[in-house]
Amino acid sequence: MVAAVRRGASAGRAADIRAAALSLFSERGYPGTTMADIGAAVGIRGPSLYKHVDSKQELLAQIMTGTMDELMRTHRAAVAGCEDVVERLRRAAEAHVRYHARHRLEAFVGTREIRSLEEPHRAQVLARRAAYERAFRELIVEGVEAGRFVTASGKLTSYAILDLGMGVAVWYREGGDMTEDQVVYQYGDFALRLAGVH
């Protein structure tokens, strides 16, 4: 019982550290953030911070791989159990946009700090990004082959749909003149138009 409580406390502390790093990376940039800054944000002195995380680079890698893994998980959940390719693309696009509306900092850090990743972390994140884009492209190609979509390039269409979500992360704020659901639904329409729903 005591060991389980300690593991839970340690996991909670690790989550706090990641959240502080995410906030600081988005505010100051990865190069402008020190481990001491992260420690101060969670009330841990520098040397003690290394009991929970190996390095600042590890934190950035955790944030960015975690973001891509969560995007893939939400994509799979969105399309599961649906046979119609048009509806699957709508669901996938809506899940993508909703994630970015709710996780603006992850989107911002993921876009800006790819340059700060070192190997092998950079390759791991890029591989996840490629797999995520490919999941959208495969839906579009399937729709074209079924005569449901009309588009000259599945690859460019998938990039355009992915850009929708990243754009939402820039401007969307809760409490604005459109609800999250309204934005998500409208952007689902945009995605279908980009795919040339026929």
Rank of each mutant, 00 (worst) to 15 (best):
L49K: 12
V184Y: 02
E133W: 06
H121F: 13
L162Y: 01
R73S: 13
E119S: 14
V125L: 05
A95C: 08
D163K: 09
T157P: 00
A11P: 00
H198C: 07
L24I: 13
T157R: 05
L192V: 06
L59D: 11
L71M: 13
V183S: 11
V141G: 02
P31D: 12
V97M: 06
R128Y: 07
L22A: 07
Y185Q: 14
I38W: 03
V150L: 13
R18K: 15
A146I: 01
G81L: 10
R193D: 10
G43R: 07
E133G: 13
L105M: 06
A61F: 00
D84R: 05
E138P: 00
H75K: 01
R13G: 01
Y50F: 12
M68G: 08
A95Q: 04
V197N: 02
A130Y: 04
R88A: 08
T111P: 01
H198D: 06
V184R: 04
L24A: 11
R104N: 10
L105T: 08
Q186V: 13
R148P: 01
V53F: 01
P120S: 03
A135Y: 00
M178T: 14
D163A: 15
G165A: 07
R137H: 03
G81S: 06
G81D: 08
H103T: 10
G188S: 11
A152M: 03
G154M: 11
R91D: 06
R90H: 02
G196K: 02
C82L: 14
G39F: 04
R193M: 12
T179V: 10
G147R: 04
L164K: 07
G81Q: 04
S153E: 05
Y187S: 11
A21S: 03
T65R: 11
L156W: 01
Y172F: 15
I161E: 06
M178V: 15
E118L: 09
V109Q: 03
D37S: 07
V141D: 06
R91I: 07
R6Y: 00
Y132W: 09
Y50R: 14
S153G: 09
A160W: 00
R90W: 03
R6Q: 03
L89M: 11
T67K: 08
L60F: 00
D69F: 00
Q62S: 05
D69M: 01
D181H: 07
M178A: 15
R112D: 10
R148L: 13
A19V: 08
T74Y: 00
H103L: 06
W171G: 09
T33G: 10
P120D: 01
E138W: 01
V150S: 15
Y50C: 05
E142S: 07
D163G: 12
A20K: 09
T111D: 11
F136L: 15
E113M: 10
A130F: 03
A14F: 02
G143I: 09
A41E: 12
S55W: 05
S48D: 15
G188W: 02
G188M: 10
G143V: 12
Y30T: 07
R173M: 05
K155S: 13
M68P: 08
T67I: 04
A40Q: 13
A4G: 08
D54T: 13
R76S: 14
I63T: 08
E142Y: 00
F25M: 12
V197A: 12
G167P: 10
Q57C: 04
A195Y: 02
A21M: 03
Q186E: 14
R137T: 11
R76N: 14
R90G: 02
R104P: 12
S23I: 04
E118C: 04
E145W: 02
A15D: 09
D16Y: 00
G167E: 09
